[in-house]
């Protein structure tokens, strides 16, 4: 068991080292959420009324954090394809470690890097004037980590099935945008049309964004307990799918 844990740790550390060495990529990936916050957030402020009386920038900030967590973690699933192309995958596959540990190491590593990006955007948002009222910082970090693990696992599952990066990127684009727009990151679900709201309820990110909004601002369309339960369920399910898909890789 100890051996497996050390492997998980080693693979986690590897993701962090790679993340640290690719600063330009990180800055690039933070560009879009940054512009969402600064341009969309401030630009829409005047025409948008939020149910609880806050401003629009404040309203979308948790949504943008959720978006960063999802983008960062989903794309970190690409490591499976990168490893396959550059051969490192074999090194891990023949090591005397279970594939479950390999997936967990990659997932935790990717999730941690997404978490760091999420925190950076959170800091930027508060510099832009968003007044977060964080009741429980430990709960916030745990919740953010769970969202990330959930989406990394989905990314790993998809990447395990893909042959090359282009295919992966295409799928990601088709998946990420609807998930993001449906999540209620940019508009309140309570006033949305019925059909849209139903679709939103099927989107795991919805529960992430609503949960974050509750922890950060104190209000949400969905009760926090439900958000937490749904995210827990999705996280476990996606990890299982990722392990299953990764297990089926035959090199």
């Amino acid at each position: 068991m100890n051996k497996e844990l050390e492997s998980v740790y080693a693979l986690w550390k590897r993701e962090l080292i790679r993340f640290y060495r690719s600063k330009s990529r990180v800055i690039g990936s933070l560009g879009m959420p940054f512009f969402f916050l600064t341009i969309l957030g401030t630009g829409m402020n005047s025409i948008f009324t939020v149910p609880n009386g806050g401003n629009y920038l404040e309203f979308i900030a948790p949504g943008i954090i959720g978006m960063v967590l999802m983008f960062g973690s989903m794309f970190s699933g690409i490591i499976v394809i990168v490893d396959r192309q550059f051969g490192f995958l074999k090194e891990t596959l023949v090591a005397p470690v279970s594939r479950t540990s390999i997936v967990l190491g990659k997932a935790l590593g990717g999730a941690t890097t997404a978490l760091v990006q999420g925190i950076i955007i959170m800091v930027i948002a508060s510099f832009l004037g968003v007044n977060f009222q964080i009741a429980n910082i430990a709960l916030l970090l745990l919740f953010m980590l769970m969202i990330s693990v959930m989406f990394v696992s989905l990314g790993i599952a998809i990447a395990s099935k893909m042959e090359d990066m282009h295919g992966f990127q295409i799928i990601m684009n088709f998946l990420i945008m609807p998930l993001f727009f449906l999540s209620g990151a940019l508009f309140p679900l309570s006033t949305a049309p019925e059909l849209l709201r139903t679709a939103s309820m099927l989107d795991p990110l919805t529960y992430g964004v609503q949960g974050l909004r509750f922890i950060l601002l104190g209000y949400s369309d969905i009760p926090f307990a439900l958000c937490f339960a749904v995210i827990t369920g999705f996280t476990i399910a996606f990890i299982a799918i990722a392990v299953y898909a990764f297990n089926r890789i035959e090199e």
Binding site: I17, R18, R21, S22, F86, G87, F88, L89, K90, E91
Partner: peptide
């Protein structure tokens, strides 16, 4: 084929 991590 090579199986190192290039970025480490």
């Amino acid at each position: 084929d090579q199986s190192l991590d290039d970025e480490l």
